[in-house]
Simulated assay, not measured.
Amino acid sequence: MTARTSRARLERAAAEAALAVPGVAFLRPGIADVLRGATGQRPGSCGGVRARAAEGSGGWRIDVQLAVLRGHRAVDVTRAVRAAVEAAAETAAGAAATGGRPVRAAVTVTVTAIV
């Protein structure tokens, strides 16, 4: 499996996990994602989720940008999303690809709007 394939799989799994959390309205792509989509670069990208290999640790850095539904506490939603994405990252990256070691993922969640 290539690094691009595993990143795409990781981003999809993170997006699905984040969207399943109560209080998440939608994932919000950043301007770079919008521009990439307009130029046709990086097909299969999940807007609002960006994964990249963490330097030196063998793990991943995952950034999630999302909107929270009105009536939900943003801090509770971000904590739940972080936990869900961390669990999804371990599953998505797969123990087979890492020789049975759990995948470490540092997850950052940014609330961009309350709708």
Rank of each mutant, 00 (worst) to 15 (best):
Ser6Trp: 10
Ala20Asp: 14
Ala105Gln: 06
Thr78Asn: 04
Gly40Lys: 08
Thr39Asn: 06
Ala54Ile: 02
Thr5Ile: 07
Thr112Lys: 13
Val107Leu: 10
Leu10Ala: 05
Phe26Trp: 13
Glu86Val: 14
Val75Leu: 12
Arg4Pro: 00
Ala14Pro: 06
Val77Phe: 08
Pro22Glu: 13
Gly71Trp: 12
Leu35Trp: 13
Arg50Pro: 00
Ala97Thr: 11
Ser45Trp: 06
Val115Pro: 06
Gly99Met: 05
Gly56Pro: 01
Gly40Gln: 09
Pro102His: 06
Gly71Val: 10
Thr112Met: 09
Arg79Phe: 12
Glu16Phe: 01
Pro43Cys: 08
Thr2Tyr: 01
Leu66Arg: 03
Ala95Ile: 01
Ser57His: 05
Arg36Thr: 03
Thr39Lys: 09
Val75Thr: 13
Arg9Ile: 04
Gly23Glu: 12
Ala83Ile: 04
Asp33Phe: 00
Pro43Lys: 10
Ile114Asn: 10
Arg36Cys: 05
Ala53Leu: 12
Val85Ser: 04
Leu35Tyr: 09
Ala84Arg: 02
Glu55Ser: 09
Asp33Thr: 03
Arg9Ala: 15
Arg7Trp: 04
Leu10Met: 07
Ala15Cys: 11
Ala92Lys: 01
Ala80Asn: 11
Gly30Trp: 00
Glu86His: 07
Leu27Tyr: 00
Gly44Ser: 09
Ala18Glu: 00
Ala14Ser: 14
Arg28Asp: 09
Ala32Asp: 06
Ala8Pro: 02
Arg73Ile: 02
Leu66Glu: 01
Gly56Met: 04
Ser6Asn: 07
Val111Glu: 09
Ala54Val: 03
Pro29Cys: 03
Pro43Met: 07
Ala106His: 12
Glu16His: 03
Ala80Gly: 10
Gly37Tyr: 03
Thr110Lys: 04
Phe26Tyr: 14
Gly58Asp: 07
Ala51Arg: 00
Ala93Tyr: 06
Thr108Lys: 11
Leu10Gln: 05
Ala32His: 11
Ala54Gln: 12
Ala87Asp: 15
Arg82Trp: 00
Ala96Asp: 14
Asp76Pro: 04
Ala38Leu: 15
Ala51His: 01
Ala53Asn: 01
Leu27Pro: 00
Thr78Cys: 15
Ala96Met: 07
Val103Pro: 01
Val111Cys: 14
Val34Trp: 11
Val85Thr: 04
Arg42Leu: 10
His72Phe: 15
Ser45Gln: 14
Met1Arg: 14
Arg70Tyr: 15
Ala18Cys: 07
Ala96Cys: 05
Arg73Lys: 15
Pro22Tyr: 08
Ala3Trp: 03
Gln65His: 11
Gly71Gln: 09
Val77Ala: 04
Ala67Trp: 12
Ala17Gln: 02
Asp63Gly: 14
Arg82Gln: 15
Thr91Asp: 15
Ala83His: 10
Thr98Lys: 03
Gln41His: 13
Glu11Leu: 08
Ala80His: 06
